[in-house]
C-alpha cells in the first residue's frame, strides 16, 4: 500500500504529467506487461517484469523468511507495518527525512519509507522487534530506558536502530561523533539529551570494543 501526501497536487493543471502520458502513449521498445509476473526477452536475455498489480515478495526479516502480496509501488515500511504487523518502524514524514522508519538492511541503517518492498528481496532486513528477546533488551535499548531517551516514543524505535548501527561502526564514539553520527533522526519531544547519554552508556556497556557486535 503505497503512500501519498493527501494534499492535492497542482490544482486545475491543464496538463498533468498523468494526462500527458495518457494522451501521447508510451514509446517503449519493450512494451508494458499487464499484471503479475511476466518474462520478457531483453537484449537476448530473459528478464522478469513484476506488477503493476500485486505480486508475491519474499523478504528475509529478522532471520526469518516472510512473504507478502504487494504491488511494486508498496514501500518496505508499509509492507512491514500493514502486511506483516511489524509496527515498530513508524511512518512519520514518509519522505526520507525524519528517521522514524529506520531499519537495517545488510546491517546499514535505511529509511524503510524510501525502499520498495520488492527491491528489498534478497537482503537481510533487521527491524527493532528483533533486538530484544524474552524481555531482555539490547544494550542500546536498555540505555534508552536508563537515560530516559524517549518521551512520546514515536521516534524511539527508529532512533534505537540508528544508534545500534552507529555503534556497530563506531564502537568508541566521542561526544562529537555522537552528535554528527545521528543526524538522520528527528525527535519532536526533544529527547536528544537522553539519546546522547544513552549512546555513551551503550558504548561503554560493550564488552569488546570494535569487535563483537551486539544483537
Amino acid at each position: 500500500m503505497s503512500s501519498s501526501g493527501d494534499m492535492p497536487d497542482k490544482p486545475n493543471s491543464g496538463v498533468s504529467r498523468r494526462n500527458f502520458l495518457r494522451g501521447t502513449g508510451l514509446v517503449l521498445s519493450v512494451p508494458l506487461v499487464a499484471g503479475g509476473v511476466n518474462v520478457v526477452t531483453v537484449e537476448g536475455a530473459a528478464v522478469q517484469v513484476y506488477g503493476p498489480d500485486k505480486v508475491q515478495v519474499s523478504l528475509n526479516i529478522n532471520g526469518q523468511a516472510r512473504s507478502a502480496e504487494v504491488e511494486p509501488r508498496t514501500t518496505l515500511l508499509d509492507t512491514l507495518r500493514n502486511d506483516l504487523d511489524l509496527t515498530g518502524a513508524k511512518r512519520v514524514c514518509d519522505r526520507g527525512t525524519c528517521g522514524a522508519c529506520t531499519v537495517l538492511i545488510d546491517d546499514k541503517p535505511v529509511y524503510a519509507c524510501s525502499v520498495l518492498a520488492i527491491d528489498a528481496q534478497g537482503r537481510r532486513i533487521t527491524t527493532v522487534e528483533s533486538l530484544s528477546s524474552n524481555g531482555n533488551l539490547h544494550p542500546v535499548q536498555q540505555a534508552f530506558v536508563d537515560n530516559d531517551a524517549q518521551q512520546c516514543g514515536f521516534c524511539t524505535p527508529g532512533f534505537v536502530m540508528a544508534c545500534k548501527a552507529f555503534l556497530d561502526r563506531n564502537p568508541n564514539p566521542t561526544a562529537a561523533d555522537i552528535e554528527r553520527g545521528l543526524g538522520g533522526n528527528l525527535c519532536r519531544c526533544g529527547t536528544y539529551v537522553g539519546v546522547r547519554a544513552a549512546v555513551a552508556q551503550a558504548a561503554k556497556a560493550r564488552p569488546q570494543r570494535g569487535g563483537r557486535r551486539n544483537g
Binding site: 503505497s2 503512500s3 501519498s4 498523468r18 508510451l26 514509446v27 517503449l28 521498445s29 519493450v30 508494458l32 506487461v33 531483453v42 537484449e43 536475455a45 528478464v47 522478469q48 517484469v49 513484476y50 506488477g51 503493476p52 498489480d53 504491488e71 511494486p72 509501488r73 520498495l116 520488492i118 527491491d119
Partner: peptide, 21 residues
C-alpha cells in the same frame, strides 16, 4: 504513488533497452 511495473535488469544493455524514449 501511481502503480508501475518493476524490472531489475542485470546488465546495462538490458537496462537501457527497458527505458523509454
Amino acid at each position: 504513488m501511481q502503480k508501475f511495473e518493476y524490472v531489475s535488469p542485470t546488465t546495462k544493455e538490458q537496462a537501457v533497452a527497458l527505458l523509454g524514449e
